[in-house]
């Protein structure tokens, strides 16, 4: 496009159509916003905004339906995969996804996620792992690291008392019904790009009816970790990535086959 003074303008940023104009309520530096944007960009690129249905969790992203410009349901705490199952079974040509925090998915909703994966439920799950309960003010999550201080582990997560963090990709990749299970991180631009690719792949898996797909995103909660936004990203890289190794935990054979072809 040529501007008035003859300079060339190029459009380098627009809001995805799949996001609303609404400003989010997330804390400054929280990566929930980035995850929303990645999911919205992918849905835009796939041209599926009108044919996608989202399910919001109970957690900081409880108001996700205000930010995604598409049909959305709000689930009970942890039950999003069950609700998504109901939606998908009666509307199989719609893309159905859940967006869930670690408390929602790995704690109270552990049964629902396990069985959705086990059934090979043809839905996509965006799993936000920030190692803490954000919304309720910073209690221990099932993903809280050993030694990590939270408001319910005031002297640090003691594995003798509270056990070990749950590694959901590792667990769910054992399920025969799982088609695409990967873990990515949002701590820098290069990793954010990789995360977006994985989200695209996950939705394509669903589109092709291959089975259950989940992308886990290592995320930050500067507010409840009590550090700055920048320090929080460093913390993700230095503490979370070693504890939750990034990678592809399950990639169904037909996905690779499709790639080569």
């Amino acid at each position: 496009m040529t501007g008035r003074d003859g300079m060339v303008e190029s459009l380098i940023y627009t809001k995805p159509v799949s996001l609303t104009e609404r400003a989010t309520h997330y804390c400054p530096g929280c990566t929930h916003g980035i995850s929303h944007r990645l999911v919205a960009e992918v849905i835009d690129e796939m041209g599926r905004r009108e044919t996608t249905i989202g399910v919001a969790p109970v957690g900081c992203s409880v108001f996700a339906y205000d930010y995604f410009n598409m049909d959305f349901a709000e689930a009970a705490h942890g039950r999003a995969p069950a609700m998504a199952t109901g939606l998908k079974r009666v509307s199989p040509d719609r893309l159905v996804f859940t967006y869930q925090g670690d408390g929602d998915l790995a704690s109270i909703g552990a049964a629902e996620i396990l069985h959705a994966a086990g059934r090979g439920e043809n839905i996509t799950v965006i799993f936000i792992n920030n190692a803490i309960y954000g919304m309720t003010g910073g209690q221990m999550a099932p993903t809280t690291l050993p030694g990590q201080k939270t408001t319910s582990t005031p002297s640090g997560r003691d594995i003798e008392m509270h056990g070990f963090p749950l590694k959901m990709c590792e667990i769910l990749s054992q399920m025969d019904g799982a088609a695409y299970i990967v873990r990515r991180s949002l701590h820098d631009v290069a990793h954010i790009r990789k995360a977006k690719k994985a989200i695209r792949q996950a939705f394509e898996v669903q589109e092709q009816g291959i089975g259950f797909s989940m992308v886990e995103l290592l995320s930050s909660c500067p507010t409840n970790w009590g550090i700055s936004a920048q320090e929080a990203l460093t913390w993700v890289e230095e503490h979370m990535v070693p504890a939750f190794p990034l990678g592809d935990y399950k990639v169904h054979a037909s996905i690779n086959a499709g790639k080569k072809g």
């Binding site: 704690s107 109270i108 309960y133 919304m135 309720t136 003010g137 209690q139 408001t151 319910s152 582990t153 005031p154």
Partner: peptide, 15 residues
């Protein structure tokens, strides 16, 4: 299990 507006009780107990 944490839930507002009761969570301070759980937090008190955790200490």
């Amino acid at each position: 299990y944490p839930i507002t507006p009761q969570t301070e009780a759980l937090e008190h107990m955790s200490r």
